[in-house]
């Protein structure tokens, strides 16, 4: 057992998978340069020395290296692609959406694309183009599995499950949760460390996790919003409102069994999403709740999300953009009282 942050846990997870299976390799920008950072958030730091020739630094060519990952996966490799910032996924989306996600289907089930795409998201003082919550653009793509990791235990277990999965898996990570150190430390970072077992383990790619039990209201979140929801639940508890906090974690598919079980207990739900409200994953979850467990609802679904604007730079606006603990508390309190 050891305490680790997400960046360290991912690093160990990648190293263990590369040791276990020679087909696993990493591909991306600035991930293995001697004297470099080991990726923008230190996840692959030191791995190039440990695995010569298997940490592949690419030109700045997101479409190109993503396509290479797809092609290598089709030929029996298990690439872990590293997108430096999630925003760059727009450049890579042709290869992800038109090739990786569809190859299985349009080949009549004969092609496998066992690749992992890791991408950091989140508003973190970098302005509009290094900040977007990208998961919404991929959750509606048939053929992709989409997960979001909010703590180190999950990060390692989900990474391993994704590497071993025979399908393309996108793992979203949050810049404020990595626990990156030194020059790559993030102002405003949140503690997402976990006790990591010494033994090998995986975390399923299709299950939500109940982080705190409660009977009055359910709060759904993922990535940074899980942590804010937990902080909100502490405040609400002091007022006598017991919130059940669920880390949705698997964004495609969404685990309506876990969400439904919670709603049967609470009858009320707040969905918290970093990212614009319109077209967000929270909209999909809200619709899914109506289809799967509307009978349990005692009040309409409430969403807390960012406004429909690009991510601003200046701290006062960025903080207003991102849902925070007080907005979650307020929404849950009002809902609990209806």
């Amino acid at each position: 057992m050891k305490r680790q942050g997400i960046a360290e846990a991912l690093r160990d997870g990648i190293a263990e998978e590369m040791t276990r299976d020679p087909a696993v390799f990493c591909i991306g920008e600035d991930i293995g340069v001697p004297g470099g950072w080991g990726g923008a958030f230190t996840v692959t730091l030191g791995l190039a020395e440990k695995f010569p020739g298997r940490i592949i630094d690419t030109p700045i060519a997101e479409l190109g290296f993503t396509g290479m990952a797809v092609g290598a996966a089709m030929m029996g490799m298990r690439p872990i692609a590293d997108m430096q910032y999630g925003d760059f996924l727009f450049l890579a989306s042709d290869q992800l959406i038109n090739n990786a996600a569809k190859m299985r289907y349009m080949s009549g089930g004969t092609v496998k694309v066992p690749m992992v795409m890791r991408a950091p998201i989140g508003a973190t003082g970098r302005g509009s183009q290094h900040a977007q919550s990208m998961e919404r653009y991929f959750t509606g793509v048939p053929g992709l599995k989409v997960v979001a990791v909010s703590n180190a235990y999950d990060a390692k277990g989900i990474l391993k499950a994704a590497v071993r999965d025979d399908n393309p898996v996108m793992i979203f990570e949050h810049k404020l949760l990595y626990g990156s150190k030194g020059a790559r430390a993030e102002p405003g970072a949140v503690d997402a460390t976990s006790e990591i077992p010494d033994a090998d383990y995986t975390v399923p790619l299709d299950q939500a996790a109940v982080r705190r039990e409660g009977q009055h209201v359910t709060i759904l979140g993922w990535l940074l919003m899980t942590h804010y929801a937990m902080a909100a639940a502490t405040i609400l508890a002091a007022e006598g409102i017991e919130a059940e906090v669920i880390d949705v974690r698997s964004l495609s598919p969404i685990d309506y069994a876990t969400i439904g079980a919670s709603l049967r207990k609470t009858g009320r739900v707040v969905i918290v999403e970093e990212g614009p409200k319109t077209g967000g994953v929270s909209a999909e979850i809200a619709a899914g709740i109506m289809e799967h467990c509307a009978d349990s609802l005692m009040a309409p679904v409430v969403r807390v999300a960012s406004p429909d604007v690009p991510v601003p730079f200046t701290p006062i606006l960025e903080n207003a953009y991102r849902p925070d603990v007080s907005r979650i508390v307020e929404a849950a309190r009002r809902l609990a009282q209806t």
Binding site: F25, G53, R54, I56, L63, G64, F65, T66, G67, M68, A69, V70, G71, A72, A73, M74, M75, G76, M77, P79, D94, Q95, N98, N99, M103, M106, S107, T110, V111
Partner: peptide, 29 residues
């Protein structure tokens, strides 16, 4: 695939990075 042909990529140039990746796999393997 058994005959060595990836399903046609109907997005113009979409097969080029893909083919490079297949060749990368051959080299790594």
């Amino acid at each position: 695939m058994d005959k060595g042909m990836v399903p046609g990529i109907a997005i113009v140039a979409g097969g080029i990075p893909l083919a490079a990746g297949m060749a990368l796999a051959f080299k790594l393997q």
